[in-house]
Design a protein around this nucleic acid. Structure first.
Lengths: 246, 246
DNA sequence: CATATAGGTCGGTTTGCCAGACCTTTTGGG
DNA sequence: CCCAAAAGGTCTGGCAAACCGACCTATATG
């Protein structure tokens, strides 16, 4: 039989997330990605529960988890509320998620990034490109502070997804960035690397402005490959299996 | 505030799928996509439940649903089992899913397809390209029978995801193809269109063989645009909203 | 100091899912 | 010919997640 790989996926374990899990993930990622900035106030519980279409109790489970993990702070009383913590928890990374399949996200990333890039080249507005360019300039001033740089970088990449004008790609991109962060936090980022990386950003924008999708995608690929090569030295095994000659 | 679109996604309703739903979707899609061919026998319930890591009762809910919808047939007795129905249910399409956001899948599709294409250009093996070429030849003989053509087409696109050697992309691609089918079934497919489409397939493979990712992606974009243009006449509104000048 | 606005707590109900025992149908093999 | 094996079909009890809604507590502002 031939269509084997595809069939295997069909029978892979079904593991739907619970409402609680998904909520933690959504809010947690948004915070780690800087979509919710330190000090930002979340909507009141009852309201947020409505927006997320979950019960308040479930929402509170998630909030509690995020408070305990240091992502959120909640204050009681009249002008109280739930706030994004000022000092982000230093997620001690390493040791976890360094699995074999850490590589899997890289593949997905390539797809989302280059796909979004191709679309952005066609649909992006001047304003959006301007904004991307601002971000590039901002990054240029953050070469010494990786924390900051990375946040701006995330906004840059999400910005590309926005320029693609597609909700699905936007969620895809936030997904990707969230998962990438786990990996990216692991590696050193000397200013030279960031400089180079940001140059690629600049070239990318140029191609986008010209509407040259193919070139833009090539830039993006080059860009993502950079990370991959750096990671290559860190992740446990570069084994990329071949089918067992079925 | 600027990062608005991204924030909205954060607070979108959380709606985790149930195990039941996801199972129906997985099996149903696999059947509609032809990954499970008519007459194929599924593993016995108890075993399948183990593989999917769900309880037999939940699995049976899903199977029952699929039997009622005509996708599956189950036979009792010793050499019984659950089989893929010989005649696929003629999902009377129209009327449903023609929503505004039918367009959303098209965007995601572009990302997955062009992303997978880019990767396949780098990682695909000769054997895989050979196989893709076989499929193209097969399609060339199916220009008069759209049902058949479409199945082969699906296998072609999934084949590209396989050539990209990435599990995530594979699931992404099956997702995309499943959702696309809803739309594609709606439109007429005269042989001329299929011919043209298949020529694009052929060019795509050529580019893949040369390892020319950029060119391959361009081919793929051209290919997907074809569908989009045809659909453009059918879907309710081509409105692609711009942000309300926040 | 009253009251509005928040977070915090509790109890009861519903629903999804699971585990496992048991029944029924059919057929291949002794 | 009959029975054991291999399937699908049925039922029960139990647990945990999620929901709903009412109520408690803190506190800052007017």
């Amino acid at each position: 039989m031939e269509r084997d790989a595809a069939l295997e996926t069909v029978f892979e374990p079904v593991r739907p997330a619970s409402a609680f899990e998904e909520t933690v993930e959504r809010l947690g990622s948004a915070i780690r990605l800087g979509l919710l900035a330190p000090g930002d106030k979340l909507p009141p519980e009852r309201e947020l529960a409505k927006r997320l279409k979950i019960s308040r109790s479930t929402l509170r489970q998630a909030l509690t988890a995020l408070v305990q993990s240091g992502h959120l702070v909640s204050l009681r009383g009249r002008s109280g509320g739930t706030f994004v913590a000022e000092r982000r928890p230093q997620a001690e990374p390493v040791a976890e998620a360094l699995d074999q399949d850490a590589w899997a996200i890289l593949d997905y990333r390539v797809a989302i990034e280059s796909g979004a890039t191709a679309l952005a080249a066609e649909r992006g507005t001047e304003e959006q490109f301007d904004r991307l360019e601002e971000l590039v300039e901002k990054m240029a001033g953050e070469l010494e502070d990786f924390e900051e740089y990375r946040f701006t970088d995330i906004r840059f990449h999400i910005g590309i997804a926005e320029a693609a004008h597609s909700p699905r790609l936007l969620t895809g991109m936030t997904d990707v960035q969230a998962q990438m962060s786990n990996l990216i936090d692991l590696i050193a980022h000397p200013p030279e690397v960031l400089t180079r990386s940001n140059e690629q950003h600049a070239r990318l924008i140029k191609a986008l402005r010209k509407g040259d999708g193919a070139r833009a995608v090539r830039c993006m690929r080059e860009h993502t490959e950079g990370t991959e090569h750096v990671l290559a030295g860190l992740l446990p095994a570069p084994v990329r299996l071949e089918p067992p000659t079925g």
